[in-house]
Design a protein around this nucleic acid. Structure first.
Lengths: 191, 191
DNA sequence: ACCTGAACACCGTTCAAGT
DNA sequence: ACCTGAACACCGTTCAAGT
């Protein structure tokens, strides 16, 4: 229900009272199921990130895995209104697991990269994708409300085109992916 | 004043009413100076990021510039409580300028990298640093309140050691910096 | 086990009115 | 030009009490 309300009305209107009303219940009833609002939001974040588990990375190179996981993460976040902001805060609060770490680490570990390095690489990619998409999504919803000058629009030609066009994102992700591949090889071979 | 209150009481308690009270004024008085709270917070963010202008990047390589700008950005964010979260949201809302773009672009432009690529690289670095520091700072303040299990602590040995130890951060930043250097060269020479 | 009802201690913002 | 006072329409959370 919270996920539905998030997508329909946005994060600022995702209040305990609205969720409760939509469930035809008092707001206080929610506190039997969740200790507080942040925990409830973390559960919503986990739902948003669920499709991450479908990515199969076994046969991929590090660079490929970074691109696939990064692109899928962005898709998950763009699938619901304000999802990037919500997930960003759940991640920062440590109430939700890293959405790409286990899969990326499976690949790097297979290639003999030390775990500490892999963890750091996974964090770098995650922070970039979430931050980028947060910013992107903010512009998208601001656009749809006509709140920004045209110059900052994302799709100047056709504002209602496919929403998940990757333009700069794909380029940046590829840069990072290739960069990590190179760095990881340096660290593992060179020491 | 808002910056002082932020550092002392944290972002959740940085309310219009508290700011006004500290200024010995009514909350409504603030609305003569700022159209809303987000704009006021953006002004605070700009103050937090002011030291970014002191970084001199003219003679640096791309990799050096990324490391210097990234490290300085993290220092700015760690200088005040909850600053990373505050700046993250101001950036996402587009109410504050990118803290590293102009300087990093000066370097890449000098090296003949196309602007579109440079912009994307600057965004990648910015999102990584802000996201990483946001997460880090959250753990720091959670630590100081004893709210997390010990396993997630940052400084297991000495919780009140130097607060700005870069451990993983420096490693990750170097990886990204080297990676970008390589990628940027590929793009410019290879096409 | 699960929920209600009412309260507590707050919010951001607006706006007529003052000086 | 700058601020007050009062109000509007909300918040998250707690807790005794109900079934």
């Amino acid at each position: 229900m919270a996920l539905r309300l998030l997508d329909e009305y946005g994060l600022p209107d995702l209040t305990m009272r609205h969720i409760a009303t939509a469930l035809e219940v008092q707001a206080s009833a929610l506190y039997w199921h969740f200790p507080n609002k942040q925990t409830l939001l973390a559960a919503v974040s986990a739902r948003i990130l669920a499709p991450m588990d479908d990515v199969r990375v076994e046969e991929m190179t590090v660079s490929e895995a970074v691109r696939q996981l990064g692109a899928r993460l962005r898709e998950c976040l763009l699938a619901y209104r304000d999802a990037a902001e919500l997930v960003s805060s759940s991640l920062a609060l440590g109430l939700v697991d890293s959405p790409i770490r286990p899969q990326l680490m499976a690949v790097t570990r297979r290639d003999g990269v030390p775990d500490s390095l892999s963890r750091v690489a996974a964090e770098a990619v995650m922070h970039f994708v979430v931050g980028y998409t947060f910013h992107e999504q903010q512009r998208l919803t601001a656009d749809s409300f006509g709140l920004l000058p045209e110059a900052t629009s994302l799709n100047p030609e056709d504002a209602s085109a496919q929403p998940a066009e990757d333009g700069d994102f794909g380029e940046a992700l590829t840069m990072i992916a290739d960069g990590l591949e190179v760095s990881v090889r340096q660290y593992t071979s060179g020491g």
